[in-house]
């Protein structure tokens, strides 16, 4: 019963696709051409190579955002609950701080923070 339903369901899904494929292969007028087969379809011809490099400099903003914004968000509860924290939590937080300070140093070296 279940197997029958499963087979029926799969057939119900696949048959129309198969029929459409068959229709396209057998009956549709097939007229390929240079323009028709072109990859780009906006009416314009593509120019140059698609393998070009984009300057992905946005990561610097992401780092600075993490350092100044996310850090502050986590530092506030850290400061509030500081006296009651166990040693493990304190070390984990310091590692977190270290990582972000690392980011800050990186951004400084890149010259992001110097006023142009």
């Amino acid at each position: 019963m279940v197997v029958g339903l499963l087979v029926g369901g799969v057939a119900f899904g696949i048959t129309p696709v198969l029929l459409a494929w068959l229709w396209a292969r057998v009956f549709s007028p097939n007229k390929p051409g240079v323009e028709k087969n072109a990859t780009y379809e906006c009416g314009l011809e593509s120019k140059g190579d698609a393998w070009i490099q984009f300057g992905a400099s946005y990561y610097l903003y992401a780092i600075v955002f993490l350092v100044f914004d996310v850090e502050a968000v986590f530092l506030l509860p850290f400061a509030v609950a500081f006296t009651g924290l166990p040693l493990g939590a304190c070390i984990a937080m310091l590692v977190f701080l270290l990582l972000l300070v690392e980011g800050l140093i990186w951004a400084c070296q890149k010259g992001v923070l110097t006023w142009a």
């Binding site: 549709s28 323009e35 028709k36 009416g43 314009l44």
Partner: peptide, 14 residues
């Protein structure tokens, strides 16, 4: 005009 013709060319038959 060239773009219009190119778009027409890229349409499938009929």
């Amino acid at each position: 005009a060239p773009q219009v013709v190119r778009l027409y060319n890229q349409m499938p038959e009929p």
